[in-house]
Design a protein around this nucleic acid. Structure first.
Length: 517
DNA sequence: AGTGCAGTTGACTTT
DNA sequence: TAAAGTCAACTGCAC
């Protein structure tokens, strides 16, 4: 008779501390199998790219290393979840599956619904006295951070946040978990060999050896290392450098990919900040700490918004914007979109940021907002044409932050003010010496500092005088000022429509925390 | 020393 | 986590 086991299913919670499912299986009556599944449907989703799965792979390596101390390891499969569970069922009898709720994309939401159904249909014939002869697999999910499933309003949400964030972290004593031993997993491994091989390919692909050098590496250990380097040194000028495209790379926490993939939690980072805030050593860090804490707070606010309104993956949060008129000439759309995606718009700060994002998976918040602003406003393209591109580039892609932010910056919520960034002004203010532009737009590397913001204004005389190299850097694909002006008129006029205001009232009632604005 | 004036700063409004 | 415009108060300076 197959041995009865329970499964802890890892998804975007790739850590061993502050992990509710792991606390659940302390002193578990049955052996515990740890599982991660690379799911083809999720991998194929246009929001994701190889860099994400590389990060996951690295995170899993970190967990395997830690689990050596407990003589077990995570079972890693490359299959849809049903195939994976069926394979496990061929050797064991699964009684419970424990996991975190995933505030995710449609692709994982559909998977979750199908899995719930599957669990109900897969009655365990083999007896477990307590569960009874017809027990189905029970799938038990634990809440993600401070986010609440099925919330329809935000009354008391602010208080709830503070209550939950101050609760002790869910740190299991791993030595109290009856992990399945490696020996028992051998047979299972034999059957999943092909999966492992596919894993290896992912890991060893030579193109990624090169790319990895510019991307942050995944793993719980890396997460804490990154946080400590922020707290020990890098974060001193957090508030001051946060908007600079170059300095933010050093002075910001850089925890975002670790938080997104669950190597570290908001609660862990917030509590650490809290415990240090009043200590002698950090007296001069008050501004940095306040700014950081406020961002950790906003994190859950946005994810909660997405949880309560997940249709925003496909449509405007404010339904009235379905009638908004974007550029519709297919030639123009395709030309503009391709220039934006590849960092060839001819606007240096825009191209520098897109190229940096492609190469490193990271740019700071303000520059992300600016890229969306240029896409949606100056280029007048439907935000949905760019939303997958940026998701696939952000190493820290988090659905619950990406969509609310993207729509807000695209100005289609009707509740926020219209943020129409002037890329030239941003360039001059945030990258005054052109350090960032020269780093990423090599065509302008030899230009005098003050000319890199608007290279098209350099006259032939100056070009000759300064012996500037002739190069292939494009002229701006649009007239920036004229497009901004047109966008301003278009956006403000549309926002005044009664149907926009009507849906804006609905959105405010549903998503705004009383007293937060 | 007080006045006129160009230029700056900051609060506030509009888009 | 916007930008531009408006306006009043202020500043520095020449006369």
């Amino acid at each position: 008779m197959p041995q009865a086991i329970d499964v802890v299913w890892f998804k975007r919670d790739l850590r061993l501390r502050d992990h509710l499912p792991l606390v659940q299986v302390q002193h578990n009556p049955r052996p515990v199998l740890l599982l991660y599944v690379f799911e083809p449907d999720v991998i194929a989703d246009p929001h994701y790219s190889l860099r994400h799965w590389r990060f996951v792979y690295q995170s899993l390596q970190d967990l395997q290393l830690q689990l050596q101390d407990y003589a077990t390891e995570i079972v890693i499969m490359h299959a849809d979840i049903f195939t994976a569970l069926t394979l496990i069922q061929s050797q064991f009898t699964i009684m419970h599956i424990y996991s975190h709720e995933e505030i995710g994309l449609d692709v994982t939401y559909r998977r979750d619904k199908a899995l719930a159904q599957w669990c109900n249909n897969n009655a365990n014939i083999d007896t477990d006295i307590q569960a009874g002869p017809n027990a189905s697999i029970r799938w038990i999910e634990f809440p993600y951070s401070v986010v609440r499933r099925g919330l329809t309003h935000r009354k008391d949400w602010g208080r709830y946040w503070h209550e939950v964030i101050d609760l002790p972290c869910a740190d299991a004593d791993l030595s109290c978990i009856p992990f399945i031993s490696r020996a028992l997993l051998t047979e299972l491994h034999a059957q999943t060999n092909t999966a492992i091989e596919q894993q290896q390919c992912l890991a060893l692909d030579p193109q990624w050896q090169e790319v990895d050098k510019q991307l942050q590496l995944g793993g719980e250990k890396r997460a804490w290392h990154t946080y400590y380097s922020f707290l020990n040194k890098r974060g001193k000028n957090y508030a001051k450098h946060i908007s600079s495209p170059s300095l933010s790379r050093h002075s910001c926490s850089r925890l975002s990919p670790y938080i997104a993939w669950g190597n570290i939690t908001i609660k862990q980072t917030y509590q650490k900040l809290d415990s240090l805030a009043l200590t002698e050593a950090y007296l001069s860090w008050r501004r940095a700490f306040t700014a950081m804490a406020s961002r950790l707070h906003w994190h859950c606010h946005f994810i909660q918004k997405f949880e309560s309104e997940c249709a925003m993956e496909y449509r405007h949060l404010n339904i009235a914007y379905d009638a908004y008129h974007y550029e519709s000439d297919p030639e123009v759309v395709s030309q503009r979109l391709s220039a934006w995606k590849t960092g060839m718009t001819g606007i240096p700060i825009v191209d520098a940021n897109m190229r940096a994002l492609i190469a490193t998976g990271y740019i700071n918040f303000r520059m992300r907002a600016m890229l969306v602003s240029v896409l949606a406003h100056h280029l007048n393209l439907d935000w949905r044409l760019g939303v997958h591109h940026m998701a696939s580039l952000f190493l820290d892609f988090e659905p619950g932050i990406h969509y609310p932010q993207f729509q807000m910056q695209a100005g289609v919520t009707g509740t926020n003010t219209i943020r129409l960034y002037n890329p030239i002004k941003q360039s001059q203010e945030r990258d005054p010496q052109g350090v960032f532009i020269k780093r990423w737009v090599h065509e302008l590397a030899e230009f005098p500092d003050d000319m890199v913001h608007t290279p098209w204004l350099v006259s032939p005389m100056e070009q000759q005088l300064f012996a500037l190299p002739s190069n292939n850097y494009p002229e701006p694909i649009v007239d920036i000022e004229a497009c901004a002006s047109a966008a301003r008129d278009r956006l403000w006029a549309f926002k005044k429509r009664p149907e926009v205001k009507k849906d804006a009232r609905r959105i405010l009632n549903r998503h705004i925390v009383p007293g937060s604005r």
